[in-house]
Design a protein around this nucleic acid. Structure first.
Lengths: 136, 136
DNA sequence: CGTAGTTGCTCTAGCGACTAGAGCTTCAAG
DNA sequence: CTTGAAGCTCTAGTCGCTAGAGCAACTACG
């Protein structure tokens, strides 16, 4: 039996966040002591580690909820879980592509050789989208 | 003299967002008609285009506020504006690096060859961080 | 058994950067 | 003068937590 503090220490998830996950329905409501304190078991620990890992990989709460639901039904097709991961992967790739465009543009903008704001081309470039090499 | 709707159309910034920028102090409170409606001029248009462009490049509101302040003082050193852009660029590069690590890990995880959830390695990999090739 | 100190509880509010809606007023065209 | 579009303010909601107030319970020591 783990207190919420121990669970937090073992998973690296902060205490208020654990309670928030409970509230959001990602983890089951745990048992309570006579004095109303939460007590967790190893299943809760695993569940929370799963959530933590998925969050670290950037999955959203809704996607995690779906994955947990799937995990409850071992007979459902694996393709469902795969689709969630693949969708998320595509999202990440899109974000990388966009950030790379921004990086290019900003790298071009930064590094002003003027002295004062009046002749600063950082501000000029930000004022005028037409100075950009590409869309972003 | 532009209405808020025209300003919105010309800059691509939605009407509530323009009002929000005003509230946030990024644009000056414009003049009003006798009937209390906002009327903008070309300076407001430029300011908003600047904000829009900086936002598109991913700068935060606080950074934009600083840049606007700098723009009001043409005698200040250009290095200040440059520092903001460079800081932001570094942030973007860090985000790209992190997303690339996630991409690698997810690409490895996705593409399950099992049939049912019970034998799905997507869920297994998410449950167990030790299966990951690297930290993320 | 008493007490002190740590940990837990609930509830509320705040973050960034908007977005959406209700319910009302004003403007511009015919 | 009427109609319909566009404007106004104010409030609340988004996502994924995080922080704080004010209290209750658990644990270790004497």
């Amino acid at each position: 039996m783990l207190t919420i503090g121990e669970l937090s220490r073992r998973t690296g998830v902060k205490i208020p966040t654990i309670r928030w996950y409970e509230q959001a329905g990602l983890i089951d409501e745990p048992g309570r002591t006579a004095g109303n304190q939460r007590r967790y078991d190893d299943a809760d620990l695993e569940r929370l580690a799963f959530i933590r890992h998925a969050r670290d990989l950037g999955l959203g709460i809704e996607a995690i909820r779906e994955l947990i639901d799937l995990g409850q039904h071992p007979d459902k097709p694996c393709a469902d879980a795969d689709r969630i991961a693949a969708t998320h992967l595509a999202g990440i790739r899109a974000r990388i592509a966009r950030l790379k465009r921004l990086e290019k543009e900003l790298a071009r903008i930064a590094g002003c050789r003027g002295d004062t704001i009046g002749e600063c081309h950082v501000l000029a470039a930000l004022s005028d989208h037409k100075q950009c090499a590409a869309e972003h």
